[in-house]
Nucleic acid binder design. Sequence first.
DNA 1: ATACCGATTAACT
DNA 2: GTTAATCGGTATA
Length: 205
Amino acid sequence: MLLPASFYRRENTCLIAKELLGKVLVTRFGQEYTSGIIVETEAYRGAQDRASHAYGNKRTARTEVMYAPGGRAYVYLCYGIHHLFNIVTHGKDVPHAVLIRGIEPLEGIPLMLKRRRSSLLRPSLTAGPGVLSEALGIRTIHSGQTLLHGKDIYIEDTGILVPDKEIICTGRIGVAYAGDDAALPYRFFIRSNPYVSKGKTILPS
DNA sequence: ATACCGATTAACT
DNA sequence: GTTAATCGGTATA
């Protein structure tokens, strides 16, 4: 079942990030079909969150899509190389988003391997926000696209159940510049899943 | 026009 | 454990 607008447009972005675990992220570009189970996410809470590109309600051409109602892709280039895929959440003019940090490959694995120029199925194929975008063929040109039409990029609920006991919550990765906000418990991942990224979490002080 | 830097990764020691 | 790669976005002038 395709996730509906009502899933993304709720106000609790941390809850959305948590509930995205176990959902299936799909890209379908013509005949090219690839998918993976979401195993790691991070919430970014807009105006009030120093780690967010929309901190202080900053509006630029890049961040504008986050001000749309939930259910669109926000994709940006990081370190000049990596395309990072986010899901816009909350309502209009509230620029929240969820970063997808890890997926477990499900369908179209040969195509993912080809996109990653790899021949071996191993966690480095899709563990990490930059590499999973490459495996799924997601690039900055997709920023702003809707996830609600079941075309190009979308998310399905296939009934995979992730027990609460298997979900771990920590501080976020790579946002040391955000001061105290870096340690907020906004990162969610599935315990012991090999496709969770290997970055260092920032511990609360 | 110019300068700085990052929600990372892979390849090193 | 460390660090080079790499370039669009953003701020400043």
